[in-house]
Amino acid sequence: MLRHLSNKIVFSSFSIFLFVLAIYSITVGPMEITFKDSIAALTSRHNTLAPHINLVIQDIRLPRTLLCIFVGAILALCGTVMQGLFRNPLAEPGIIGVSAGAALGAAFAIVGFASLGIEFPNFLSLALVPVFAFLGGALTTVLVYKLGTSKFGTSVTIMLLAGVAISALSGAGIGFLNYIADDQMLRDLSLWSMGSLAGASWGKIVLSGGTLILLLGYFSQKAMSLNALLLGESEAKHLGIPVQKLKRQLILLSALGVGITVSVAGMIGFIGLVIPHLGRMLAGPDHRTLLPLSALLGALLMTAADMFARIAVAPAELPVGIVTAMIGAPFFLYLLFQQKGKIL
């Protein structure tokens, strides 16, 4: 009872924090707009503010903040599910190569269908790129899973090595696409490969928001099954859980989530590594609580990272993927240090 009450307090506190941070994020940017004017532009389309202020708040900063929330939540959810599925704290879409595979698929769509994108830009960014990113992420996930799994269980060492190999291969593919791309494609690929939310649009928000609702709803339904998997695959089978079917479903949906985030925001790593650990520290390993809390924390971290990216070198801005890597890479090294005796 006390634990349940504590979890409610934690969730409520971070929900309020996210709301406040999101409002503040809308007021932050290279153009100086007062907090009062930002709120006025946000709450009413019929106001006396200058047209450029309404444009910046309603069509640039608000969509960007919403996209931050959705992308961060999706990445955190996928990382939580992968760690629960593989029963290992080092599993994360970026580290085991899933993000790299999704990035190769998306880059192929950007370069291969560039002429189509000139005539139908929304079709390219909201349909073709997400589909190819999903296919790349799904194929990578299945390959890593097949390589790392045997009758004795899942080998973290093989998974990590497979992730390194796939990331290198995907990097070579993206490098080749950069080589054959024209100037405009090259610029788009360069900015996209470092992760950026500057291209936020309402279409991308609908796509990522719908994906988040789908993933959170389905993963929450499978929370008890994920809890059972923590005991081991054989124990989960004895409890009547169709382990192989569950794995395929979770792997494909995680790949879908990663593919969508890669297509709308580029390469953003380590959110899915850091957040599940914070969630377990705050609420324990029960996925019924851990999944929604991870989504909330992922949205919070992503929004904070994007705010830092916008103000750190203003009036320019850092790619948000660089900021998350600065946070996540030291954390990953810390985890490796903790786990080094277990994975050898």
Score class of each variant (00 low, 15 high):
315 P>Y: 10
258 V>W: 02
95 I>W: 01
283 A>M: 15
132 F>Q: 06
181 A>Q: 07
203 G>E: 01
214 L>K: 01
36 K>N: 15
330 P>K: 15
250 L>H: 10
195 G>Y: 01
124 L>P: 00
122 N>T: 05
318 L>S: 01
73 A>Q: 04
42 L>N: 05
184 Q>K: 13
310 R>T: 07
66 L>T: 02
37 D>S: 11
213 I>M: 12
188 D>E: 13
279 G>E: 12
68 C>E: 14
320 V>I: 15
169 L>P: 04
277 H>E: 03
342 K>T: 00
125 S>T: 08
172 A>L: 15
29 G>N: 11
88 N>A: 06
90 L>I: 11
316 A>P: 11
174 I>G: 03
67 L>D: 02
179 Y>H: 14
314 A>E: 11
309 A>S: 13
28 V>R: 12
211 T>W: 05
325 A>G: 12
54 N>H: 10
72 G>L: 08
258 V>D: 01
243 V>H: 06
220 S>Q: 03
253 L>Y: 04
157 T>P: 00
270 F>V: 05
342 K>W: 07
286 D>A: 09
106 A>T: 01
46 H>A: 12
344 L>K: 13
75 L>V: 09
8 K>Q: 15
41 A>N: 06
141 T>Y: 06
301 L>W: 08
212 L>C: 00
3 R>F: 07
265 A>M: 03
99 S>I: 00
335 L>W: 07
302 M>N: 09
161 L>V: 14
148 G>I: 06
223 A>C: 03
67 L>K: 10
121 P>D: 09
268 I>L: 02
322 I>P: 06
56 V>I: 15
141 T>W: 05
106 A>V: 04
329 A>I: 06
102 A>L: 12
314 A>M: 12
130 P>E: 09
263 S>K: 08
226 L>Y: 11
284 G>C: 05
259 G>K: 00
326 M>H: 03
160 L>V: 14
142 V>T: 08
54 N>D: 14
97 G>C: 06
108 F>V: 09
262 V>D: 09
145 Y>G: 00
179 Y>L: 12
55 L>M: 11
104 L>S: 03
269 G>C: 02
120 F>Q: 08
329 A>P: 13
214 L>I: 07
14 F>A: 00
85 L>Y: 06
16 I>E: 08
44 S>P: 03
70 F>N: 09
342 K>F: 02
149 T>M: 13
102 A>Q: 00
335 L>Y: 08
326 M>S: 12
267 M>P: 00
324 T>L: 00
325 A>K: 03
291 L>K: 08
217 G>Q: 13
193 S>T: 14
158 I>T: 15
126 L>F: 04
226 L>C: 14
179 Y>N: 10
309 A>H: 05
343 I>T: 02
247 K>I: 06
277 H>Y: 04
170 S>E: 04
152 F>V: 07
35 F>Y: 13
118 I>Q: 11
93 P>E: 01
29 G>Y: 12
162 A>V: 07
140 T>S: 13
49 L>Y: 05
311 I>D: 08
233 E>A: 08
248 R>A: 13
265 A>P: 04
78 C>E: 03
310 R>W: 07
177 L>Q: 06
123 F>G: 08
17 F>A: 15
306 D>T: 07
66 L>H: 01
41 A>V: 06
339 Q>I: 04
25 S>L: 10
62 L>H: 11
308 F>Q: 07
332 F>G: 05
128 L>N: 02
329 A>C: 15
67 L>E: 01
115 S>C: 10
142 V>Q: 07
49 L>V: 01
